[in-house]
Amino acid sequence: MTRSQIFRAMMLALFACAAIAPASAQQVPLQDKPFAEHKIVLQLSDSDVKKQALVLSVANNLLKFYDPDKVAIEVVAFGPGIDLLHTGSDRRKQVESLIAQGVRFDICLNTVDTIERETGKRPDFIPAATPVQVGVGQILFLAENGYTVVRP
Rank of each mutant, 00 (worst) to 15 (best):
Ser4Asp: 14
Gln5Tyr: 01
Arg8Trp: 05
Ala9Trp: 00
Ala9Lys: 07
Ala9Ile: 01
Met10Lys: 04
Met10Ala: 14
Met10Tyr: 06
Met10Val: 07
Met11Gln: 07
Ala13Met: 14
Ala16Thr: 12
Ala16Arg: 04
Ala16Pro: 00
Cys17Trp: 01
Cys17Leu: 15
Ala18Asp: 08
Ala19Gly: 12
Ile20Ala: 15
Ala21Glu: 14
Ala23Gly: 01
Ser24Phe: 15
Gln26Ser: 12
Gln27Thr: 11
Pro29Lys: 07
Leu30Asp: 11
Asp32Arg: 09
Asp32Glu: 14
Asp32Phe: 01
Lys33Asn: 13
Lys33Met: 14
Pro34Ser: 12
Phe35Tyr: 10
Glu37Trp: 00
Lys39Asn: 09
Ile40Thr: 07
Ile40Val: 14
Ile40Arg: 04
Val41Trp: 02
Leu42Tyr: 00
Leu42Met: 08
Gln43Phe: 01
Gln43His: 05
Leu44Tyr: 01
Ser45Gln: 11
Val49Asp: 15
Lys50Phe: 14
Lys50Asp: 14
Lys50Trp: 06
Lys51Glu: 14
Gln52Tyr: 00
Leu54Pro: 00
Val55Trp: 02
Val55Asn: 04
Ala59Gly: 09
Ala59Ser: 10
Ala59His: 04
Asn61Trp: 04
Leu62Thr: 00
Leu63Glu: 14
Leu63Ser: 10
Lys64Glu: 15
Lys64Ala: 15
Lys64His: 13
Phe65Pro: 01
Tyr66Gln: 11
Tyr66Met: 10
Pro68Met: 10
Lys70Pro: 09
Val71Trp: 03
Ala72Glu: 09
Ala72Gly: 09
Ile73Trp: 08
Glu74Gln: 12
Val75His: 02
Val76Cys: 08
Val76Met: 05
Ala77Leu: 03
Phe78Trp: 06
Gly81Cys: 02
Ile82Asp: 08
Asp83Ser: 13
Asp83Glu: 12
His86Val: 06
Thr87Ile: 07
Gly88Pro: 02
Gly88Ser: 11
Gly88Lys: 03
Gly88Tyr: 13
Asp90Val: 09
Arg91Lys: 14
Arg91Met: 15
Lys93Asn: 15
Val95Phe: 04
Ser97Trp: 03
Ile99Leu: 06
Ala100His: 03
Gln101Val: 06
Gln101Asn: 14
Val103Ala: 09
Val103Phe: 01
Arg104Gly: 11
Arg104Glu: 13
Asp106Trp: 01
Ile107Gly: 11
Cys108Lys: 04
Leu109Ser: 11
Asn110Leu: 10
Asn110Asp: 12
Thr111Cys: 05
Val112Cys: 09
Asp113Pro: 00
Glu116Tyr: 00
Glu116Gln: 12
Glu116Leu: 04
Glu118Gln: 13
Gly120Val: 04
Lys121Asp: 15
Lys121Val: 15
Lys121His: 13
Pro123Phe: 06
Asp124Phe: 02
Ile126Lys: 07
Ile126Gly: 05
Ala129Glu: 09
Ala129Gln: 04
Ala129Asp: 08
Ala129Gly: 02
Ala129Trp: 03
Thr130Gly: 04
Thr130Asn: 11
Pro131Lys: 08
Val132Met: 09
Val132Leu: 03
Gly135Ser: 12
Gln138Asn: 13
Gln138Ile: 01
Ile139Ala: 08
Ile139Leu: 15
Ile139Glu: 13
Leu140Ala: 14
Ala143Ile: 03
Ala143Cys: 12
Ala143Phe: 02
Glu144Pro: 00
Gly146Cys: 00
Thr148Lys: 13
Val149Pro: 05
Val149Cys: 04
Val150Ser: 06
Val150Arg: 11
Val150Asp: 06
Val150Gln: 05
Arg151Lys: 10
Pro152Thr: 01
